Amino acid sequence: YAVHNQQMVYGYLVVFANSFDYVVQRMHQFVLTLDSCAGMFVQQESLRDSNRRLQEIQNKIIVSFADMVESRDDFTGQHVKRTSEYLRILVKYLAEMPEYAKILTPEMQDRMCKAAPLHDIGKIKISDVVLNKPGRLTEDEFEVIKTHTLSGGEIIEKTLTDIESDSYLKVAQEMALYHHEKWDGSGYPYHLSGEEIPLCARIMAVVDVFDALTSKRVYKEAFPVEKAFRILEESSGTHFDPKIVGTFLAHKEEVRQVLTKYQDRHI
């Protein structure tokens, strides 16, 4: 008897018996059952492998989206990679706090880290003249820059609907739309305040600003890391959620390790 699935033969079963008819009948049933189990196993493994490959492709597309924005500014360097790593550090420790434990599940943490590179995707619609202006922006130019949040939410909805899960889509959109909202309500685009701002966006705001402070841009030099930490601390309760920025500042050494890992600027 051959143990097989479609064209793939896994082995053969040879039976030696005196009571031939009875044994052959039982062994025939056994082989049919074994064939069925082997077939289901192979199909499930093939499906899992296909899903893994599809997920890898989707992740590469997401990173490519972010790289399209990065490539327009020579000074942004490894911004999306650093912010994703800062975020992973931050959510790991926030998840240990009782008020966030049920929200920041391992699945939610992975979802946020995967969505983080898309937070600035809306900048793809901003003119290079404005985006890379070396001097201070005019009021009108700043209004143009602010539209990247709305554009980001729109791009994510149009490109990832029916490709990614609804839960991922929601997190990615919230990060893109609300990461410039401020705890005191003075941010944009909707002037949300406090816990009106989705948690993922409040977290994204901290790591995004920290990386902006410690990065060289066309309009400024990189701030020393201690000065960046001090600015975050001074902005607690106005720009940032106090609990979130406090947790970030409580783990400075891990943050510094990320800075060391990406040696594309002076700290």
Score class of each variant (00 low, 15 high):
H4M: 13
N5P: 10
N5R: 14
Q7G: 14
Q7W: 10
F16R: 08
A17E: 10
N18P: 03
N18L: 06
Y22P: 00
Q25C: 09
R26P: 05
F30S: 13
L32C: 11
D35I: 10
D35C: 15
S36V: 07
C37Q: 14
G39A: 11
Q44S: 07
S46K: 09
S46L: 14
L47N: 02
D49G: 04
D49F: 10
R52M: 13
R52I: 12
R53K: 08
L54G: 03
Q58A: 03
I62N: 00
I62R: 00
S64R: 08
F65E: 09
A66T: 08
A66Y: 00
D67N: 14
S71R: 15
R72G: 03
T76S: 09
H79L: 12
V80N: 12
K81Q: 04
R82L: 09
T83Y: 03
S84V: 05
S84G: 04
E85Q: 12
L87D: 00
I89S: 01
L90W: 06
V91I: 08
K92Y: 02
K92F: 02
Y93W: 07
L94Q: 00
M97H: 13
M97W: 13
P106A: 06
E107P: 07
D110G: 05
M112K: 02
M112C: 03
C113T: 11
C113L: 01
K114N: 06
H119A: 03
G122S: 06
K123S: 04
K125I: 06
K125N: 10
S127E: 09
D128R: 01
D128M: 06
V130P: 02
L131S: 04
N132G: 05
G135F: 10
L137R: 07
D140I: 13
V144K: 03
I145D: 02
I145V: 15
K146H: 12
H148M: 14
G152H: 03
E154W: 07
I156D: 05
I156M: 05
K158P: 03
L160I: 00
E164Q: 06
S165W: 11
K170F: 09
V171C: 12
E174H: 11
H180Y: 12
H180M: 08
W183Y: 14
D184G: 10
D184I: 06
Y188E: 09
P189V: 04
Y190G: 00
L192H: 07
S193H: 10
E196H: 07
L199P: 01
I203G: 03
V206H: 02
V209S: 07
V209C: 01
V209L: 08
F210A: 01
D211F: 02
A212M: 15
T214A: 14
K220L: 05
E221V: 14
A222V: 13
P224G: 05
K227M: 03
A228C: 02
L232W: 02
E234N: 13
T238G: 02
K243M: 15
T247W: 05
T247L: 13
H251S: 05
H251V: 01
E254W: 03
V255N: 02
V258R: 10
K261C: 04
K261Q: 05
D264S: 08
R265S: 09
H266E: 15
H266Y: 09
I267H: 13
